[in-house]
Amino acid sequence: MADKVIAKTDLRKWLAGMAADHDVIAPIGREAGPATWKDINGTQDIDITANQMVMAAKEFLLPVHDVLFRFHTRKGEERLEVPDLTNKSTVMIGLRLCDVRAISVLDAVYYNQGPFRDAYYAARRDKLALVAAVCDDPRWSCFCTTVGDLKEWKLGADVLITDLGDKIYVQPVTEKGEGLLQGDFFSSPSEDDVRKKSEVWANLLALPKRPFAGKDISKIVSWDDPVWEEQARKCIGCGICTFMCPTCSCFDIQDETTGSVIERYRCRDTCQFSDFTMMGAGHNPRPEKKMRVRQRVLHKFKYQVEQFDLIGCTGCGRCVESCPVNIDIRGIVSHIAAEPL
């Protein structure tokens, strides 16, 4: 598979070409708040390599309101309506390597589960192609290189793109990805292009690592570390960290009746709410905030490591940026690595 370059002025032609056969979704900025994954149709202002705050890819793969089925109860017209899961194929363009990694983590939970593969997730995932941008301008909260090997993560993408200024360096990773690179606006990269692309990679890999890089936190972390209580005192229990997290995917299932139609849907839920573990009979196995603060960190750095051999944290920094009381997971895990109990 050969690398290519495309002039930025031709970017729209490439996107339009893909849009003929696929739904093409990209981070689209709004007047306020993070950019959101929307169809590029009719949108002029697309900057696929801008390092802006973007909702995690789960916005597409696990929508905040995911209809499982509807039940029509009008007398004589009773029927079950299951949503059409035969999606058109979709191209997500403008992901980051951390987002690609996050999809690998979601795959472990929803997809690579043998007979228990989630049909709704799989319908979207099966026909999904990932076009990921290599970061040339990491945010203040980024720590991807601390929690993983980007050269391994990139293999989860179908195409990699690197911003070279007036053009974009395009590398197919999979055959599916190569299939997306059709058009006479692609040309072979010059030596200079290759050198510039390697510089972006070198800069990214030189991102300073946190003290817990390479340490197996799952083996040294303690339930009794005072850090949980310290952080819990600050924590206001809002759950933004989990709502913004690209790998947090816990859900609630709700029934809602409108007239004669009952809709069953999945929506977000979070281990940071005390209701999350509340049992019907009134018992709550995770009643204290410190247990909930601990759960979020350990799910990523211990339980998912033991279960899937994957660190559940991708170092994207969304929780770090969004926490209103400045609870910084980098500090917590650094503390655990430096002073294990």
Binding site: G33, T36, I236, C238, G239, I240, F243, R268, P324
Partner: peptide
Amino acid sequence: NEFERCIRCYACRQI
């Protein structure tokens, strides 16, 4: 238009 963005994390309430 504004409320459409809300993800109902209730951070506004918690803070």
